[in-house]
Simulated assay, not measured.
Amino acid sequence: MAESQHIEVSYIDGNGWWMGNGVEHVAAGTALGSDCTPVVYRPSAIGKTARFHPESGTWSAEIENMASKTYYSDTGVASTIGVPDGTYPENAITAPPPDYDPRSQAVLYKDGVWKIYRNRIGTSYWDHQGHEHTITEPYFELPVDCTFETPPQPEDGYVVRLMDDQWQQVEDHRGEIAYAKNRESETDQDYQITELGAVPETHTLIAPGLFDAWDESTGKWVYDVEKERHYKISVEKNWRDEQLRNVLDRIDQYEKDQNYEPHYRTSPLSDTEYLGLLGYRKLLCDYPDSDGFPFGERPVLSYPEPVEEPPKPTMMQRVLNKVKPR
């Protein structure tokens, strides 16, 4: 310039973007620097900007200045776009997070809203079965059917379960046998328990005896003689039938042997033993009708006492018996 003067200018960055307006003193014989231009741009509104093109000496169309626009990651970390003609990155969050204490809290953008999380790293929580877990991440949300409340110790025969957000004692008979109280039922049967909970009213954990019946008044099994009677009748009749078959076989063999010469006979029975078998056969036949059956005494094989024959007379006695008195 021929003489010194003050010139209003627009300042620009290395890429030509407007950085504001001011006045520069230009000494005689010098020129303006490359960081400004006498072609002044005046924004039409706050936040507007334009770009200067030195080759044509003109400003580009005015745009919204995006350089200072702030956006956030889903964990609340702030960033700026940095360039006037920039755009927000994909999935950028423009809503600022709420105020929080980073020493004890964390924020997370989830489902379209910011949420503040209390830092619980290292804290224990329990699932509905009472299993303990440890929190290892800052953005922790308590799962469904879990609690921070320590479960109580289960009582004998029980386990603790979280139900309606409360710890409750639940009966645990898994692996045990549930016995049907109605031993004659076709629908209620004994079974091994596989689920938690109380035993149904139709069953009990008390094992019955072979001849027991359930007594509702005492809640116990009691001996039922009629149950044993039916069983005992079957047992005793089977025993009687087996004994009777054996006796009849021996009697039949003996009676058939009587038709043969002695040296052809195979039955070793004596007459006394034969009579004993006949008596035993009668007792066996009458056994089911005997007093106290089937709880009475079983018939026992016995032999009759042998009949003693009078001694044979001596020779002298026979001679004397032939002499008639005078």
Rank of each mutant, 00 (worst) to 15 (best):
M1D: 13
S4C: 05
Q5F: 12
H6D: 15
E8A: 14
V9W: 02
Y11W: 11
Y11D: 06
N15I: 03
M19T: 10
M19L: 15
M19A: 14
N21S: 03
V23A: 03
E24F: 13
A28I: 02
T30R: 05
G33A: 09
G33V: 08
P38M: 06
Y41G: 06
A45E: 13
A45V: 07
I46H: 03
K48W: 01
R51C: 15
F52Y: 15
P54M: 01
E55Q: 14
W59V: 04
S60H: 05
I63E: 08
K69D: 02
S79Q: 06
E90G: 11
A92K: 09
T94A: 07
P97M: 03
D99A: 13
D99T: 10
Y100K: 03
Q105I: 11
V107H: 08
K110G: 05
V113A: 12
I116G: 09
I116E: 14
I116R: 13
G122K: 00
T123W: 11
Y125K: 08
Y125Q: 07
Q129G: 14
H133F: 13
T134N: 02
T136R: 09
F140I: 11
C146R: 08
T147C: 03
P151M: 11
M163G: 03
W167C: 02
W167R: 04
Q169G: 07
D172E: 07
G175P: 06
G175L: 07
E176C: 03
Y179V: 03
N182G: 08
N182L: 11
D188C: 10
V199Y: 04
E201K: 11
H203D: 12
G209R: 04
F211N: 14
F211A: 07
A213F: 04
W214G: 03
S217W: 01
T218D: 02
T218E: 06
V222H: 01
V222R: 05
V225G: 14
E228T: 10
I233D: 02
S234N: 07
K237C: 08
Q243C: 12
L244C: 05
R245C: 02
N246T: 13
D249V: 00
R250P: 01
D252M: 03
D252V: 05
Q253Y: 06
Y254Q: 02
E255Y: 08
K256Q: 15
Y260A: 13
E261Y: 07
S267M: 05
S270W: 07
L275T: 08
L275F: 12
L277T: 03
G279F: 00
Y280S: 09
R281I: 04
D286F: 01
Y287V: 06
D289N: 11
D291E: 15
G292Q: 15
G292D: 15
P294H: 06
F295H: 06
P299Q: 04
S302R: 13
P311G: 02
P311S: 12
P313Y: 12
T314K: 03
M316F: 12
Q317T: 01
R318S: 02
K324V: 14
R326N: 15
